[in-house]
Simulated assay, not measured.
Amino acid sequence: MSVISSRISRRRTMARWIAVALTIAVVSADDNWPQFRGPKSGVAADDPVLPDTWSPTENVVWKIDVAGRGWSSPVVWGDHVFVTAAVNTAGADESLKPVPSYTARSFGGPMSGRDIGTSSDPHRWVVYDVDFKTGKIRWERSVRTGVPTEPKHQKNSYASETPLTDGERVYAYFGNVGLFAFDMNGVPVWSKPMGPFKVRSGWWSAASPALHGDRVYIVNDNDDRSFIAAYDKRTGDEIWRTSRDEGSNWTTPFIWENALRTEIVTSGSQKVRSYDLNGKLLWTLTGMSSARRRRIIVHQLGLSGRSAPAGLRDPSRRLGGHLARKE
């Protein structure tokens, strides 16, 4: 079950329906949640008035069935709630297991990196626009129909990347399918097919896009040809692409506006990298583990990854004592 409010969106869990849960007196659809982890990439004030418990009836305004399966988060702009999914056109997806069955072996559970799922059924990759007030689906658009080109881990889905919106368009990114833009009425604006790319151990993709100014940024780290790229949000034209000496990762780029400049900070295998808005490498921070799955959070002082950094190298200038820290 996935829970959406107009101020906070929670990740969609392993179910095929979504619900809105909120306190009507204090929550307004004018509050926007435009991208993965919100407008400030995870920094949000705690509102004690918002509910923190739900049941099939408690604090639920509406709920709807949504075809398909996707671990992407919903994003909200005004009274638009955008979600994505991959729909098995041949019938129902394989039944989900009890939640404890997905616990990793490193935490005493049964699941490992070798638990891969494959499908020979055609799938539709879909973007939905749901009315915030009523829960009715305004429109749905398919961006591709076909058999998945790669397998996926059983804990992943074929639609795990969270879309983003600026109130003019919604941008849906599926790492092994492409990047697609629609206006708020569901009219296709542009599309950039991508891949297929081989992903480590057949785990599929999951890195969400980021928006800054008039550009959409993506990181696609895979086992074929990893890269970071910027696209014009109005036309879809590729503005630049920078190759990355990386294997597969599942991280979302973080736009860091600091006192010196604006940077695109990315995590990766053994290393965090920062780029300027033209794709030039600014600095690297070593000491990470072999694969990264989360967005970078930047503070004045901190660390990135599970261990202390082995070294910070800035090819352009010093960062004034700023380090990067993983959430």
Rank of each mutant, 00 (worst) to 15 (best):
G175W: 06
K233E: 12
K155P: 01
T145N: 07
R244Y: 04
D214W: 00
T149Y: 04
W256N: 12
G195I: 11
N220Q: 13
S243Y: 13
G135N: 11
L179P: 04
H212R: 10
S142A: 15
V189D: 07
G236N: 00
R215N: 05
R200L: 12
G186N: 03
Y171N: 04
H153Y: 03
V130K: 03
P209N: 07
Y158G: 08
P163R: 01
E257D: 14
Q154Y: 09
W203L: 11
I137T: 15
D224A: 11
K133A: 10
F182E: 06
S205N: 05
V143G: 03
E257L: 03
D166A: 04
K233C: 13
K233T: 11
T162M: 08
F254N: 14
G175E: 15
G202W: 00
N249K: 02
T145I: 14
G247R: 05
G186E: 06
V130W: 02
P193S: 02
G202C: 06
T134Y: 05
R215D: 01
P188R: 13
W256E: 12
V177G: 03
F227K: 00
F197V: 05
N185C: 01
K133R: 12
A230D: 10
A172M: 04
A206E: 05
P196Y: 00
T252P: 08
W190N: 02
N258E: 04
D245H: 03
L211R: 06
N156G: 04
D245A: 08
K155N: 04
N185P: 00
W139C: 06
V177C: 04
A207K: 03
T149M: 11
A229N: 10
S208I: 12
K133N: 13
W250I: 09
N185V: 02
P253E: 05
P209G: 06
D183L: 00
L260E: 10
W250K: 09
W139E: 01
K192L: 08
R141M: 06
T242N: 02
D221L: 10
R234C: 06
I239D: 09
D232C: 08
E140V: 10
I137D: 10
A181W: 12
I218M: 11
Q154E: 08
Y128C: 04
V143R: 11
K152S: 12
